[in-house]
Each structure stands twice: as structure tokens, then as C-alpha cells.
């Protein structure tokens, strides 16, 4: 027996050192995997909300409000959710690397795989209406989120370009709408000759999109009425729904 092995055995006996029980390691590994899967699920949720936010956009209104298609697309991107998605997937990558065999994979492969899994799950969530439910709940129950949502859509309040979005305050069917836009200006909108896209029926308290012409500082004549932030995805984007 060498001096070192004797010292080690003496220390083990003297300090009553015992091997850490196997169940503790197994629990730790399970926790790590659970945290990774949770991060992927959050990533999928973020993807489904992003699809909802981009998929629900009325591109005709964006075209009118923006300075060309690229500018319009930049305005439409939901940066808050893109940041959340980035953080969650970065965490997922780090958690995967901490798993037993995680180090055997290149960082880029881990990140891209996590993105791919979240993307596929996110599409499934989107078609199942999860993105809509999450988005609607956040808008209704979380004040700051609703404010962010309205401020994000302010770029669509450009009456001089013939485009307006806001919440319906009052309705005179087939004649007039009273709305308050996301810049807090009230408008009387003539809808007597307006075409309603997707047979959309405006409702008091809900958002509406309008394309047409500004008549005065508080009057607007609409050519088209668009569904804006519909509570459910449009049929064309919902192949799972009968």
C-alpha cells in the first residue's frame, strides 16, 4: 500500500465519506432534461405567438403604412417575442450541453436542433390555436403587454396614407363606426360603401383595421374593413380545423 492510498483510505474512514447515492445523480439528470424540454416547449410557445403575430397581419394595410415591402416587414416583426425566443433557445442549448452526453455535439448543432424542434412544435401549437390563446390571454390579463401590443401597432395609424387601426367605441351598422386609434385619437368612420374582408363584423371594444381616405382630422371614409387581431386564426392558415 502506498503512502497516498493509505492517506486516502484513512481520510475516507475518518471523515466517514460515502459515495453519493445513485438516486441523487438520477434526479439531477432528470431535472436537467426536464429543464431542457421546458425550454424547448417555451421556445415552441414563442414560435406559435410569432406565427400568430405575423400570420395575423393584413399585408395590404402594412403596404399602405410602410415605405415598401421590406420596411413594412421590419415594422411587423415582433421583436419582444424574438428576444424571448432567443433567450429561451440559448438556455436550452446550455442545458443540453450540461447533460451527460451533451458535450459530444457541437454548439451550433445543438442550437440548430433546438430551434428545429421548437419550430416544428411551434407550428403544431399555432395550428392548434395555442399561440392565439396565449396572445389573447396576455393582452386581456397583462396590462403592460396590452400596452406593448398597441404601441407596436401604432405604425398602422397613418390616416394620411389611408390606413387606420383602433378599437371600436360605437357602431351604426352599415353606416358609421366610432373608433379610437392606437395614438388615442377618436375618429368617425363612414363605412357605408366599405367592403368587409373575410365578412368581418366589427364589435364594440375589439380592434378593427380600415383602409380608405382621411376626410378631416377626425373623419375617415373606409373602402375596406379588415379583421384586426382576430381571436382565432384565419381559416386559410388553419388546415387542421374543419
Amino acid at each position: 500500500m502506498t503512502k497516498l492510498s493509505k492517506n486516502i483510505l484513512d481520510k475516507i474512514k475518518k471523515d466517514k465519506i460515502k459515495p453519493i447515492p445513485r438516486w441523487q445523480f438520477i434526479s439531477l439528470h432528470i431535472l436537467l432534461w426536464a429543464a431542457y424540454l421546458l425550454a424547448i416547449a417555451f421556445g415552441a410557445l414563442a414560435f406559435s405567438v410569432i406565427f400568430r403575430l405575423i400570420g395575423g397581419v393584413q399585408w395590404e394595410m402594412v403596404r399602405l403604412a410602410g415605405k415598401g415591402p421590406v420596411h413594412g416587414f421590419i415594422l411587423v416583426l415582433p421583436y419582444l417575442w424574438l428576444i424571448i425566443l432567443g433567450v429561451v433557445l440559448f438556455l436550452a442549448g446550455k442545458l443540453f450541453e450540461k447533460t451527460k452526453k451533451g458535450y459530444q455535439f457541437k454548439h451550433v448543432v445543438v442550437v440548430l436542433s433546438s430551434v428545429a424542434i421548437s419550430l416544428i412544435l411551434g407550428m403544431m401549437f399555432y395550428f392548434a390555436g395555442v399561440g392565439h390563446s396565449v396572445e389573447n390571454s396576455l393582452t386581456e390579463k397583462v396590462g403592460p403587454y396590452a400596452e406593448w401590443r398597441d404601441s407596436r401597432d401604432k405604425f398602422l395609424v397613418v390616416p394620411d396614407n389611408g390606413v387606420l387601426v383602433g378599437r371600436v367605441l360605437d357602431i351604426k351598422p352599415k353606416e358609421e363606426l366610432m373608433i379610437i386609434d392606437f395614438m388615442r385619437t377618436k375618429w368617425v368612420v363612414d363605412i357605408s360603401e366599405a367592403f368587409s374582408v373575410d365578412n368581418f363584423q366589427p364589435q364594440i371594444g375589439r380592434p378593427v383595421g380600415l383602409a380608405g381616405e382621411k376626410i378631416s382630422d377626425d373623419e375617415f371614409k373606409a373602402d375596406k374593413i379588415f379583421p384586426f387581431r382576430p381571436p382565432k386564426q384565419r381559416k386559410i392558415l388553419n388546415p387542421l380545423k374543419k
Binding site: I8, K11, I12, I17, P19, I20, R22, F25
Partner: peptide, 10 residues
């Protein structure tokens, strides 16, 4: 070696 001993189950 102490660390190896403690972590033998891992």
C-alpha cells in the same frame, strides 16, 4: 480520489 470515491455512483 476523494471526489472520484464520492461520485462513484455517477
Amino acid at each position: 480520489f476523494i471526489k472520484i470515491y464520492k461520485n462513484l455512483n455517477d
